[in-house]
């Protein structure tokens, strides 16, 4: 499946490009991500995608297979699998940065092959998770650059959320900070009644095109794990 997302950061394009390709630093901007090791352009990364009360944890390799500093593009290949569970992920991500006045705009195109419980949620849900992640990533990236003193102003993330306090320039501390914030944001438990209502509303679409119901699907993700919860 193909996913597309965009973001914007109020920082110079070279600055943004350099930061994004510095995997060690940028990992701290991705909610739930953790850099486990490096081997040249191959980086061993873990990521926890947290939805409601449930987190799905993946581990795998991110390889930067192409970079063109002049064009501000890069291509990455991802291959990973669930740490607890049997799902797999294989993806190729194309990053393209462009200048828009003092803002840098980023476009990410991802061709992803998922299996396991994430795949069964359908493209709509995955796009939703992806957009949320990219939005948070952009916001955190801006805060990181701001902390470096390189950014003039805050970020204009895809989600339009205002930037919070600057992100620590220490990757580990930044990661912890991001995780804490994400946890706080996600702590909105879903009641059974809401689920039932959502399911009833969800009946208006077929599983092949459930994009509009991504939120509902995400709510149910929590229960996909059955006894694994907790």
């Amino acid at each position: 499946m193909r996913l597309e997302d965009e973001f914007a950061v109020a920082a110079p394009i070279q600055e943004v490009y350099a930061t994004i390709l510095d995997v060690e630093r940028v990992t701290g901007c991705v909610p739930g991500a953790e850099l486990l090791g490096n081997d040249g352009d191959v980086h061993n990364v873990g990521i926890r995608v947290k939805v409601g009360p449930i987190s799905m944890q993946y581990r795998g390799d991110v390889e930067i297979v192409e970079r063109d500093e002049a064009a501000h593009t890069a291509k990455m290949r991802v291959k990973g699998r669930e740490v607890r569970g049997q799902g797999t992920v294989e993806a190729t991500a194309q990053l393209r940065l462009s200048e828009d006045g003092s803002t840098t705009r980023g476009a990410i195109e991802v061709e992803v092959a998922l299996s396991g419980r994430a795949a069964s949620m359908g493209q709509g849900a995955i796009q939703d998770v992806s957009s949320k992640l990219v939005g948070r990533f952009a916001r955190n990236l801006a805060r990181m650059l701001e902390a470096d003193g390189a950014a003039a102003a805050g970020a204009a993330g895809a989600a339009g959320a205002p930037a919070g306090e600057p992100l620590s320039s220490d990757p580990a501390a930044a990661a912890a900070q991001v995780e804490r914030e994400v946890r706080d944001e996600d702590e909105n438990a879903i009641s059974g009644r809401e689920i039932v209502g959502a399911v009833v509303r969800g009946r208006l679409s077929s599983p092949l095109v459930s994009a509009g119901l991504a939120g509902v699907t995400l709510g149910l993700l929590g229960f996909l794990l059955g006894r694994r919860a907790g």
Binding site: G192, I195, V196, L220, F223, L224, G230
Partner: peptide
């Protein structure tokens, strides 16, 4: 179903109908 949709596990908790598969 164990994911809160089918309602087979419904019980009364302090008089209210709840899905016992969705509660700890």
């Amino acid at each position: 179903c164990e994911h809160g949709v089918c309602g087979a596990c419904t019980i009364l908790l302090d008089g209210e109908a709840v899905r016992s598969c969705l509660m700890f």
